[in-house]
Structures are given as C-alpha cells and as structure tokens.
C-alpha cells in the first residue's frame, strides 16, 4: 500500500489512537477498558501505521524492539506482585496507598504491564510477518546468496 493520503492520515490517526489507548488503559479500573483493550488499540494503531508505511518506520517510531516491550511489560507485571511480599502477603496481593484524594496501588502497574505485553507481543508478530513478506517480495534471492 503506497498512498500519500493514507500515509498522512494514518499519522494523525495513530496519534489519536495511542492517546485513546492510554485513556482506555487508565479508566479501565472503573469503566469499561483496561490493559488488554488499551494494548489492543495501541497495537492496532501501530499495525495500521505498518500497513500504511512499512515495518521499518514503525520500529523507528516505537524506538524499542517490540520483544523488549513485551519483556518489560511482563517484568513490570511480575515486579508489581513482589511488592506484596514486603507486607508479607501472598504474591500479587494488591497493595494500596492514598495520595491526597487519589488511590494508588499495584494493580495499575500490573495493568500497564498487561498493556505493554499485548502491544509488544502483537507487534512482534505483525512486524515480523510484514518484514518477512517484504523480504520475499522485494528480494526473492536470499541474503546468503548475495555474497
């Protein structure tokens, strides 16, 4: 797909979708939404971007390898569970503290971890497929043969 209008429109759309995904993530504890939904929206945004441009542009926009994003998410989710051991309570027991009027607790970093895993895992697959496709199409001769 190589369309100038699509490319430019996607830029705007992607930004809006990312914002929306974070909105969905953060409101998830009280209204419909959450890490899974937010993560999926963000993943779709980047996937759309990959369709409009190419995988390389998405990698540049992401700045981090999607696998790393998934790993960081998983680490965040696990890490948030370890806080409970300080109390001590069973692993992953929600720990809460009140900051002014606002309740802050470990479920939020956990949900952010879920968000990151979903984004990272989905984009790992999407970008991987996309790059391999591009490889096969543009360059039927494989790299080893070019020596």
């Amino acid at each position: 797909m190589n369309s100038l209008i699509l490319r430019e429109a996607t830029r705007l759309l992607v930004a809006l979708m990312l914002l929306f995904s974070i909105f969905m993530l953060l409101r998830g504890h009280n209204e419909p939404g959450g890490g899974f939904i937010g993560g999926l929206i963000a993943a779709i945004a980047f996937a759309l971007y990959a369709l409009a441009t190419d995988a390389q542009a998405v990698r540049k926009a992401l700045r981090a390898d999607p696998r790393v994003i998934a790993a960081v998410g998983l680490g965040l989710a696990i890490g948030s569970g370890f806080l409970a051991l300080l109390e001590p309570a069973p692993f992953l027991t929600g720990q809460w503290t009140t900051v002014g009027d606002f309740k802050a607790g470990t479920p939020l970093p956990f949900d952010i971890g879920v968000y990151l895993v979903v984004v990272g895992a989905v984009l790992t697959i999407v970008l991987g497929i996309k790059e391999q496709q591009a490889d096969v199409e543009d360059d039927p001769v494989e790299p080893e043969d070019r020596r």
Binding site: F36, L40, V118, A121, V122, I125
Partner: peptide
C-alpha cells in the same frame, strides 16, 4: 487475547 496469540502463531 490468548486465542489471538494462538491464531497468529
């Protein structure tokens, strides 16, 4: 979400 992962795989 998991079945999506499975499907993609």
């Amino acid at each position: 979400v998991i079945s999506f992962g499975l499907l993609a795989f």
